[in-house]
Amino acid sequence: MSTLLLVPGGLWEEMDAERFWRRPGVVAALQRRGFDVRTAERPHRAPSWASEADHLAAALPRHPVTVLAGSNGCSAAVRLALQRPDRVERLLLAWPATAGDDDIDARLRPALAALGATAEVLAALLGGRPLRGSHDSELATLTQPVGVLPAVPDNAVHKRRTVDALLRILPQATELPGCPEAPRPEFPPHLDRFADAVADYIRR
């Protein structure tokens, strides 16, 4: 039985696996499709993506897993795959959050600073492109198969250009059918299609 580790989105906000994956029905839908589904909790207000990866590594079972991450959780998942390549057999990046956008970062910087983020922490969290916390040259070293699920329709936080950049940088990446992000109220009608796309990709 394949093991999936689900990593929720969020960036220094009140978001967890319950709200991101369980309440929308994703965990149950994937379990019905025969997977051993586990959820990870990201550390509260981590100072860097590397520290997030260290935290996630502690939640990994002894055998390699598929990591399904959403939104900003994609940055943590990619960093985990870079730091622990032997533990992550494939990546699924759902609705990857757009990095390097001046308008988005202009809103995030004061919000994160108000929560206690120092200039050093802000640089660590917001730096990188096309994903926060990693650059093209690092992404190109990933050897795992990568599935990318775009936000459809895209929006200010999850832009199509981020998906296009990932597909360009990662020759082993495959675009899967997109849909609204799981925590959004528009997601429920897309649940089965989303779960089928994930299951079909893993079983290839």
Rank of each mutant, 00 (worst) to 15 (best):
M1N: 07
T3K: 02
E14P: 01
M15L: 11
E18S: 09
G25W: 06
V26T: 13
R32N: 14
D36R: 07
R45W: 07
A46H: 03
H55S: 14
P64T: 10
A69R: 03
G70I: 04
N72C: 15
C74W: 00
V78F: 04
V78I: 11
R79C: 07
P85Q: 05
P85M: 09
V88G: 02
R90L: 09
L91E: 00
R107I: 13
L108C: 07
A111C: 09
A114G: 15
L115H: 09
G116S: 04
G116E: 12
G116N: 02
L122P: 12
G127K: 03
P130L: 10
S134E: 08
E138Q: 11
T141I: 09
T143I: 09
T143D: 13
T143G: 15
Q144F: 05
V157S: 14
R161M: 08
V163H: 00
V163W: 02
R168S: 15
P171M: 06
Q172P: 05
P177N: 07
P177I: 07
G178L: 02
G178N: 03
P180K: 02
E181T: 08
A182C: 13
P183T: 10
F187E: 04
P188W: 03
P188A: 00
D196N: 13
V198A: 12
Y201W: 15
R203D: 15
